[in-house]
Design a binder for these strands. Structure first.
Lengths: 254, 254
DNA sequence: TTCATGCAATGATTCATATCAAGCGATATC
DNA sequence: GATATCGCTTGATATGAATCATTGCATGAA
């Protein structure tokens, strides 16, 4: 009955939050991701202000650093690596609501607790902000709030697209949409046919993201491969031979 | 292959946007929904400022007033009635991403176009704002922006919950979740067992919201009725006999 | 080397939900 | 007053994806 139970159990539940490494960060101004994320909205003095409340942390692969339902008293800004966001049912079924990487921030919460969990897929670097210390900074810098709003609006659009996928698309269309999304993340809207795209998530992650089982994801990828639409290398690198065909499938016109 | 094609075709595609009625609104201060929506964040002079850019409109049932992909140059604030938001596939499959009623605002868009459509279910009253005229007002009133951000965060949480539903819940769990949601909208978290809740959406709407077919929604409701968990009256009123049982089912513990 | 473990692919079978079909009341149309 | 049409329900059947089962291939440990 529960579709993703197996994948949820097969995956070893990573241990509880232990911050693996922290480094002081007095110099957001020279941060390697300054052009991304919330920081891109700020000038030097504002960054200086932000730096005072930021701590850099490193999260090893597989570690959950936001626990569903935990007190939401921290904000994060991803500076490298890939994070999966998820929601779970009591029996272990899991839905991944998004994969986020450099530039994205995490922790926007309505209530006092996080409505979702977050787990590092590969090694992840984050900027961590205490909420109580970040709030006054946000109040001081309207552009920062503007930036958060636009980020939230973006995520909302992505979420609506994903609802369409989960509610109405076939397995084939879902997998095609996922690959399409990878392609867009890498190259924007310029297709670049034949280029290799590598992705860190496992088949189980993809399944939990697309509302399918591991087997269906695997079979569907094999199918697309057999049809000559894609090539797969080492399991975690794909090359999209015919982006336009894939795009058509993703929209249900395949 | 396309699950909701039938329901999409069965539903007569409502005609294009024609604003049915407009009334000037110089008096947001005495607006009946002042306590709700974006207005609740404002004091009298601020409301006065807002009123200058607002127009009240009335939308008849079935009319689409936001067209997917259309230029996004208006904001709306729902003052009465119920609206369904949706996304569609080229072949007509449709996913309803949410039902919104009094207090909600619509039109937060990332790009220059709306990523979703909006259709009135019953008669809907809206406050309409031209985006170009609203933007400066938002800049002037930080609290307004704060309010928009919190609203967006709320919607994001709801969207994640819905992704979990669409990706991982069974038909029974989906319908139970929907009823649960109706109950919460009406009574917050105090169950009020036995009270009648009326809802305006059709079975087809519910199906398109839950990623099911009309038939499955109907059968599932009948099942819950037969089991004595709910009572249905006139098709659009339900009474939840055992809220806790329903809640358990919705979370997959039924 | 051998063994265990995790991840992916694939085949056989089952099952939940879609599809197809029919009927029923309410409301609207001619 | 006959006849559509719409929204909903229910039954019979089909099917796409889940489930169950096996295998292969890495990688890491003993």
């Amino acid at each position: 009955m529960p579709p993703s139970l197996t994948s949820a159990i097969a995956t070893p539940r990573p241990r509880r939050l232990v911050v693996a490494g922290t480094e002081g960060c007095a110099t957001c101004a020279i941060c390697e991701v300054r052009a991304n994320g919330i920081c891109s909205a700020l000038n030097d003095p504002e960054l200086e202000r932000l730096a005072q409340v930021a701590v850099k942390v490193v999260i090893p692969p597989g570690q959950i650093f936001i626990e569903e339902g935990a007190r939401a008293d921290e904000f994060f800004n991803v500076t490298s690596g890939t994070v999966k966001l998820f929601k779970s049912l009591p029996d272990g079924r899991r839905q991944i609501t998004g994969f986020v990487s450099v530039g994205h921030f995490l922790g926007l919460a309505v209530s006092k607790t996080y409505a979702f969990g977050a787990e590092a897929i590969d090694q992840v670097r984050l900027c961590r902000f205490s909420r109580t210390r970040l709030d006054p900074v946000i109040n001081e810098i309207p552009r920062l709030e503007r930036r958060l709003l636009s980020e939230a609006a973006n995520e909302l659009v992505a979420a609506q697209e994903q609802m369409l996928l989960l509610g109405r698309k076939t397995a084939r269309e879902r997998v095609a949409s996922f690959l399409q999304e990878l392609l867009e993340k890498e190259y924007g809207d310029s297709p670049a046919p034949g280029a290799w795209i590598s992705f860190p998530m496992t088949r189980a992650d993809i399944a939990d993201y697309l509302g399918l089982t591991v087997e269906t994801v695997s079979r569907t990828l094999s199918g697309l491969r057999r049809e000559g639409l894609i090539t797969v290398r080492n399991g975690h690198e794909i090359s999209i031979i015919t982006p336009s065909r894939l795009h058509a499938i993703a929209r249900g016109e395949g």
